[in-house]
Amino acid sequence: MSTVLGVDVGSRMTKAVVLDVEAAPGREILGCGKVYTHFDLADAARRAAAAALEDAGRGAGEVAYLSATGYGRYQVADRDLQITEMTCHARGAVELMPGVVSVIDVGAQNARAIRLAPSGRVLQFRMNDKCASGAGRFVERVAKALEIDLEEVSGLALRAEQPCEISSICAVLAESEVINHVTNGASIPDILQGTHVSISDRLASLVRQVGAEEPFALTGGVSRNEALVRALEERLEMRVQRHPLAEYAGALGAALLGRQRLHARAHAVPT
């Protein structure tokens, strides 16, 4: 029984998804894995793939097709195909949350707003990859300045009573600003939720550029941040759909598109 592997090499995390080549729709995901990217992108892809295969209980020898996406996609060794993140994220989001028409994928360094046709085809997209103002790094930097573990940010921010106003758009200048808030006696939850509100403003305007419409989904690592999701829901006045595997949307999309290629190849008339 052969498998298809999709690998998404992001700037912070590298994710991989293993699919069964023949399984019925809805039952094809066999395993997932994610690792910190660090600096050797080829190595990150190998480690993520190994983690996903282990999760699936499958051997590397069974992989019939490997497709890569993410900013490090060209560094993935032995890949059969590389696909842009936009296409993969759209495909993955539709698979996880059928029917969504607008999606925002927020990673560590990029935010991508995508408008989809009911068929799942990408109609329009907008991306911020120039600066950390509207990406996960913004939250990461603030957390670091406050000496808080990134995984604890959401839980703390949910306890906010009156979110602080964070006026700096720049992640670096925001670090000084939050330190000032601490000095002036603001609580950590209020500062963190203020940060979420601030980033949500920018995410919401990115989504509006492609037309924000429900059903709306958030994918990428940031989708695990419950407090930020609430801030975004308030800003957009819309419900934000998520999925436990939303962080793997890109890798899943790559794997699904890879599987499609594999099937097309199998059915092609040999020349």
């Binding site: 700037s11 600096f39 120039k130 600066c131 950390a132 790094r137 913004f138 930097r141 720049c170 992640a171």
Partner: peptide, 16 residues
């Protein structure tokens, strides 16, 4: 990279 945050990763990348 223009962004100070992103340039940190770029520098580490170049060093590696």
């Amino acid at each position: 990279n223009v962004c100070t945050v992103f340039v940190e990763s770029e520098i580490l990348n170049q060093l590696s």
